[in-house]
């Protein structure tokens, strides 16, 4: 008897040990992976507080720590003047353009998804398929045509022309009829029709059903698509680069890209400061809402 109990004891302590060991080595692996993941971030945090502002002399713990790079970024350092630095203005431009684009494109997407989900009409399936296929076209070359359209429109309506945020937003909105319609339609399809029908019995119009009954239910997916769309627009670089040519009208990404021209290694610290301020709000948003965003990302493909 006692031998059985002893064996049970060793076995269970073995299992215990195995479990602890397994957790321990996985934690070690985690540390290595985390180093890989956050090293670049640590590195630019350090660079941004390194007063030498140089790629060549930077070390992880800055030899000359200070906030000089931030002063330079905000044009507060009289000894170090960048021409054409409008950091806060670029941040403001980026947030403005991204916010307006997000709100408008969410409206366009949601309304179109409502029609695709709740109405049956000729061409519906063809359009849904077409939307998917169009996304595949390498839109880089479309830049030539888009540039010409915006240039010519500006000759007639200057407020929508080159170098205007309205023109840029308009081009961004051209992408509203994209994959997000599928995401939104998929979500709408899961909302029971009985809800619509209860409204119809009461004599509600499509608009009333959409705006008062369904819209509140769409909030979770609206938040996800809205955040992804905001981040996507905020991070866009090519369209903004091509359509905006006045340095005061730049978005933050275009502005930050200027640093890489010429002697990047001599502007490294200031770039790091700007990159950090530009990236932090997005990082925080992502990390706080990671579960919802992950849900939104997989909604289209991962099915239970």
């Amino acid at each position: 008897m006692s031998s059985v109990a002893e064996r049970y004891q060793t076995l269970s302590s073995n299992i215990q040990f195995q479990k602890r060991f397994s957790v321990a080595w996985r934690l070690v692996v985690a540390v290595v992976l985390i180093l890989f993941s956050i090293f670049p971030v640590l590195w630019i945090v350090s660079a941004s507080f390194d007063n030498t502002n140089s790629l060549a002399t930077q070390s992880l713990i800055p030899a000359q720590a200070g906030i000089k790079n931030y002063e330079r970024l905000f044009n507060l350092d009289p000894d170090f003047q960048f021409g054409d630095m409008f950091f806060w203005r670029w941040v403001f431009n980026s947030v403005k353009v991204a916010a307006i684009t997000t709100v408008l494109s969410l409206s366009i997407t949601t309304m179109a998804a409502y029609a695709f989900s709740r109405m049956r009409f000729a061409g519906r399936v063809t359009m849904l398929k077409g939307i998917l296929l169009i996304q595949v076209f390498p839109n880089l070359l479309a830049l030539v045509a888009i540039y010409v359209i915006i240039f010519q429109t500006g000759e007639i309506i200057p407020a929508l022309g080159l170098n205007t945020h309205a023109g840029l937003i308009l081009v961004y909105l051209g992408g509203s009829m994209g994959l997000n319609i599928w995401l939104m339609k998929g979500f709408l399809d899961t909302v029971p029709r009985a809800i619509d029908e209860s409204g119809m019995v009461d004599g509600a119009s499509h608009w009333q059903i959409f705006s008062t009954l369904l819209l509140p239910l769409l909030r979770p997916i609206l938040v996800v698509i809205g955040i992804l769309s905001f981040i996507g627009t905020y991070g866009d670089f090519i369209l903004a680069r091509i359509l905006l040519n006045d340095v005061k009208e730049y978005t933050l990404m275009v502005g930050l890209q200027i640093f890489t021209s010429g002697q990047f290694d001599k502007k490294w610290g200031v770039f790091a400061a700007g990159a950090l301020i530009g990236a932090l709000p997005i990082m925080i948003t992502y990390l706080t809402l990671q579960d919802q965003i992950a849900g939104g990302l997989t909604a289209g493909a991962v099915k239970e």
């Binding site: 993941s37 790629l55 981040i231 991070g235 990047f264 530009g278 990236a279 997005i282 992502y286 990390l287």
Partner: peptide, 27 residues
Amino acid sequence: RSLLLIPYTIPGLITILIWRGMLNPEF
């Protein structure tokens, strides 16, 4: 998981430029 997610949360342009600096062969 949050720490490992960080690369995904930085706008792509910024990350690419950071790496460009870090992998600079001279400096």
